[in-house]
């Protein structure tokens, strides 16, 4: 049980880097970018093929990131230049990537059993158990990326990217080409997704054509969980940007912990996707239902108030 939990934490952190990518598009740009499923697998495939080809595992992971960036740029290109709706542009890239990923690997999966990875090197170097090594590597990468994103979204270009998701008309009126900012955000986002795919591939020691399936839903679920935690946890600075980014990664860890627990309780691994979908659907439903409920309650209350007022004036007569 403890080992499974440790594994879940390490997986959660490595997937958390993908969640940061999803955060950029979903939370900052206000786009649900479906490229993610494809670019995650792309990262894994590129990384696996390079590692098998004898490339340094760190270089392989960086190449996975670059590949993800290219995938994001393709979606961005379809969306901004040809004005294809973002969701559709993402789906097109995602579907295309399936074939590309198969071409890259030449088969549907590539095992890395006897090859050096970042994680095996870390284990060899420190003598730590592989899960702990994975957690350390994951935390280092996640911290570097969170700091980097915090810096980037504080710059002039980064501010413009954030504002694009907020109010496109305003950003254009202030002289920023929103096509460029969307392109930047989509490229950056999918770069992180590709990087995460590469890291996951090295940590699980294989890449699979289906490894990205449902990644976007995992990303959304993790963001939703992270946001809830951020609100609930005491002392958390509610709107600080760095906190929001960190909470996305923490959300990812919690997601994988929940998953591990549910699996330990005997749930079929294949049902996990349904559970993820339900978590996200609920998270999206609850605010809407809650608001409707509030409105209705306010109305019934006002009805009651006026009826009691009427009664009292009548009584007064």
């Amino acid at each position: 049980m403890g080992l499974a939990m440790l594994g879940a934490v390490s997986q959660g952190i490595l997937w958390g880097i993908m969640v940061l990518g999803v955060f950029i598009t979903y939370k900052l740009l206000d786009i649900a970018d479906l490229t993610v499923d494809g670019s995650f697998a792309l990262g894994g495939c590129v990384c696996a093929v390079l590692v098998v080809g004898g490339v340094n595992p760190i270089v392989a992971v960086l190449a996975a990131m670059l590949a993800g960036m290219v995938a994001g740029a393709v979606t961005g290109f379809l969306h901004t230049v040809f004005e294809i709706p973002a969701i559709l542009a993402g789906i097109l890239t995602q579907i295309g990537l399936w074939s590309i990923n198969l071409r890259i690997m030449g088969k549907s999966n590539t095992p890395l059993l006897n090859f050096d990875t970042i994680f095996s090197q870390m284990t060899d170097l420190t003598g730590l158990p592989s899960n702990v090594a994975a957690i350390i590597v994951g935390v280092i990468v996640a911290v570097v990326i969170i700091v980097g994103l915090y810096w980037f979204f504080g710059t002039e270009i980064g501010s413009a990217c954030r504002a694009t998701g907020n109010n496109e008309a305003m950003v254009r009126a202030l002289g920023v080409n929103t096509k460029v900012t969307k392109m930047i955000a989509l490229t950056l986002s999918n770069g992180l997704v590709g990087l995460s795919g590469g890291l996951i591939c090295e940590s699980q020691k294989y890449a699979d054509i289906g490894m990205g399936t449902g990644a976007i839903v995992i990303g959304l679920a993790a963001i939703v969980i992270g946001e809830v935690l951020w609100r609930v946890l005491p002392g958390a600075k509610l709107h600080a940007f760095g906190g929001r980014l960190s909470s996305a990664v923490v959300g990812s860890v919690v997601y994988f912990l929940i998953r591990a627990i549910v699996l330990q309780l005997g749930m079929d691994a294949n049902d996990m996707k349904l559970l993820s979908a339900i978590i996200v659907a609920l998270a999206l439903c609850i605010p809407v239902v809650w608001e409707k409920f509030q409105l209705k309650r306010a109305y019934t209350r006002s009805l009651k108030d006026t009826s009691t007022e009427g009664a009292s004036t009548e009584g007064g007569r």
Binding site: T155, E156, I157, G158, S159, A160, R162, M170, L174, G175
Partner: peptide
């Protein structure tokens, strides 16, 4: 204006209207 951004951030973006945005602090 951008609702989710601070007053200063909005002003800072407006201040840079027509200028090339760089990686300098926003």
């Amino acid at each position: 204006t951008a609702a989710d951004m601070q007053i200063v951030e909005n002003l800072a973006m407006a201040k840079r209207r027509g200028k090339t945005r760089t990686l300098a602090w926003g």
